[in-house]
Nucleic acid binder design. Structure first.
Lengths: 255, 255
DNA sequence: TTCCAATCCCCCATTTATGGCGGGGTGATC
DNA sequence: GATCACCCCGCCATAAATGGGGGATTGGAA
């Protein structure tokens, strides 16, 4: 890691305001000599927080169009463990192509590299580097800076979480073993009667567990409770998705 | 990062067997001159895979005692985002103290530093460095190697996932926009009537979407479909969606 | 000791979800 | 111009989930 980047990160560590994040990301963009650098959280309710070098026009456009739900970068990172080059994402859908066209029109570069970051309780954030150049140049860049970018992503997330304590509350009492069992079976598609049979208890008892779990998770109904349990990592269902190995089509974002 | 560590990681990247992971972790332990280094990932079903330098006796003891469920390192890392020094964990419970005593008796050092790592669908792994020394020495060590350890943790995780036999590739047809919308609202806890109202369509039409999505996802019922959509990253729902909607806030970015 | 969480069981009732049947329209693609 | 995916709506019925009560025992923590 170059000393310039080191210094920026050290400044960032000493900072305790959102402006510090913004200052750091601007400095990092210049240090790496790329077009854009962005860190942001995403959520179902919309973008909660972000800092970066995208234009206001693009940020507003993104929010207004609810691009969060079709952005292949978000969707791709959400199913992946590892950092990913934008070329490896799935740009095949029509909405994705429209999104890409709009993004390029708003000054984004054709190349991108995004690092997904996760925390407890289903927290999800992304750190993205965006640039306009040819494939070979970009490949060289990501190859040589991959490690630094992973670290930087973590530093940003650490700082952002420090500045947003109410982002991590999720008091989320832990579920009891039987509750976990019940929620897991429900997430696997078993009906209540089947779950009760599998757990060798009466359906009424099972109901008590489901209601208890629903209460602990602050959920409105069973589906909501299962969704939250999944999102918070309280239950693990269905074989690990090896999204990174999947054969997804690649886009031609290169010049 | 020292060149010795660089070389070990490069060797690791070229490796494609579990033995490669073990070789790398042994080499890293020697390179950092610590007592133990361990990478393992855990799941609801128990420890699935791990490699490291703990003695067989301790590993077997750990598994036999089901220490996974009381190990303060696991429990602490599971609720944290950041790497953590073992001293900062909660060792107050009786079971935790028993665990610690047993661990020390099996040759573990008194100092530890663990990096939690997360992936989609609640996947969780940890990379741990363990050593026997005094507090000041350990603080100096973690201070100077923190960044490297984070990176190493990610490299191990990446490699370990590559070596995992991928079960259920989940070809998963994509959902239509309206189907995504419906599943998302259901995952947020809205009942069918509310979803239909929100989407401004009749409840019967909504039913058609849900059934269509259920078919595409191969799900038995709505809860199952939502669980699968979540697990496959087809919908993006944050853990606490409803509460967040009131405090929706977006940072302004400048370029 | 007292208290509380976790584990089990049963009744009543209503609301909600699902299964099955039918009918439209658009727009893109072949 | 045929086909298909997507979008929209109606009715009927039954199966399932939920809301509201009422209990029990165990073991651990305060």
């Amino acid at each position: 890691m170059t000393s310039a980047v080191e210094h920026i990160l050290e400044d960032l560590e000493r900072s305790d305001t959102r402006e510090g994040l913004q200052t750091a990301i601007l400095a990092l963009r210049d240090a790496f000599d790329v077009d854009h650098m962005v860190y942001h959280w995403v959520s179902a309710a919309g973008e909660q927080y972000g800092c970066g070098t995208y234009s206001d026009a693009w940020v507003n456009r993104y929010l207004a169009q609810d691009y969060l739900r079709i952005d292949p970068v978000v969707l791709g990172c959400f199913q992946r463990f590892h950092p990913v080059d934008w070329k490896r994402l799935d740009w095949s859908s029509k909405s994705a192509r429209l999104f890409l066209h709009d993004a390029l029109a708003h000054g984004l570069g054709n190349q991108g590299f995004s690092v997904p970051i996760r925390g407890p309780n289903g927290q999800f954030a992304m750190f993205t580097v965006n640039h306009r150049c040819d494939d070979a140049t970009w490949a060289a860049f990501t190859d040589s800076h991959r490690r630094e970018l992973i670290l930087i992503a973590h530093y940003f997330n650490e700082k952002a979480l420090d500045l947003e304590p109410d982002r991590t509350p999720a008091p989320s009492q832990p579920l009891s073993p039987r509750e976990v069992e019940a929620m897991t079976l429900l997430a696997m598609g078993y009906a209540r009667a089947q779950v009760a049979d599998t757990m060798a208890i009466s359906e009424h008892t099972l109901r008590a567990y489901i209601e208890s779990a629903r209460f602990k998770l602050g959920a409105m109904n069973t589906t909501h409770a299962v969704a939250r349990a999944l999102a918070r990592g309280l239950i693990v269902v269905e074989g690990a998705s090896r999204a990174d190995m999947s054969t997804q089509r690649t886009a031609r974002t290169a010049s």
